[in-house]
């Protein structure tokens, strides 16, 4: 038992890093998801193509490969063109995770927007709203409740993916656990504890997403 308590401190240090990383990458992912999702539906061919390429690329390659590339390969590219592109592990992790989850999120955004009935666009046109007003005031508010369940799943996936940054020496929960294991050889306790810590965080994250989902769906009341 004494061992258990002594593990908690370093794991909590790691948990803090995990939380930060999850938060930053989810926010980045959200922004990217909307940009690419809406971009894929754009009338502008270039925007559409850019969005499609981005989505296919980041969904089609392994996250760990992307992470490693950003952390190990990009600096070398920078050297070749004379720019210092080295970045701290937290930044590399945030960018890799954010872009990756953003690509998956983009498909969710696109699907939800396309699920908004055509007649909403017609009503907006009849009232003479501009396309931009139509998207931001009429379509997106109706699309967002559709996105929330999938966003919930993606948020959990993102949390799980943060464990990979331990492989580029970022001091998250998994990294700390590995350190502890190297030191104490007490694999069972440490990894069981680690698994439950992730599980706990996932449950909390799930609950938060459920609350957000309910908030965004306020207007979807049942007919009297």
């Amino acid at each position: 038992m004494d061992n258990l308590l002594s593990y908690i401190d370093p794991l909590l240090d790691g948990a803090w890093v995990t939380l930060q990383l999850t938060l930053y990458s989810t926010v980045l992912g959200g922004v990217v998801a909307f940009m690419a999702g809406i971009g894929k539906l754009s009338e502008n061919r270039a925007t559409r193509w850019l969005s499609i390429c981005f989505i296919e690329f980041f969904r089609g390659t392994s996250l760990l490969v992307q992470l490693f590339w950003l952390y190990f390969a990009l600096p070398i590219l920078g050297q070749a063109i004379g720019v210092d592109l080295r970045m701290p592990p937290l930044l590399a992790g945030t960018i890799a995770l954010g872009l990756n989850i953003g690509a998956y999120g983009a498909e969710v955004v696109r699907g939800a927007i396309q699920a908004v009935p055509d007649n909403q666009y017609e009503a907006a046109k009849a009232l003479d709203f501009t396309p931009k007003q139509t998207m931001w005031r009429i379509v997106l508010p109706q699309a967002i409740p559709e996105m929330m369940p999938s966003f919930g799943n993606l948020a959990i996936q993102n949390l799980k993916d943060t464990a990979l940054v331990s492989l580029i020496s970022l001091g998250d929960m998994t990294f700390r656990a590995e350190q502890l294991r190297n030191y104490t050889q007490d694999s069972t306790t440490i990894y069981t504890l680690l698994l439950f810590m992730y599980f706990g965080m996932a449950l909390v994250l799930s609950a938060i997403m459920k609350i957000l989902e309910r908030y965004a769906s306020r207007w979807r009341t049942r007919k009297i």
Binding site: N119, Q120, A123, I138, P141, Q142, W219
Partner: peptide, 11 residues
């Protein structure tokens, strides 16, 4: 215009 399906903004 008034539409057959009303087309009110539900949100």
């Amino acid at each position: 215009m008034v539409f057959q399906q009303f087309n009110l903004f539900p949100h």
